[in-house]
Amino acid sequence: MTTIATLQKGEIGYISEESLDSIPLKLLEMGCLPGAEVELVQIAPLKDPLYICVNGSHLAIREETASKIQILKVNSLDV
């Protein structure tokens, strides 16, 4: 399964519509919406948490949460 947690640093994906129910409300409210572009900006030294940029919000979320949010992967170079 491709999720935010499987992105490489600097890579971009789009949050898939199917994961709507598995996104915590708080994250939705902070702009982590289905269809939104999400970039993995930085990974913390111990591989967790992840620093993402979505809908203009820069957020740190735990790997546990990130691995539940499915995405469609697009190589940043192709866009």
Partner: peptide, 8 residues
């Protein structure tokens, strides 16, 4: 345990 932190 829930963790979302904005990086301002």
């Amino acid at each position: 345990s829930f963790f979302v932190v904005e990086m301002p």
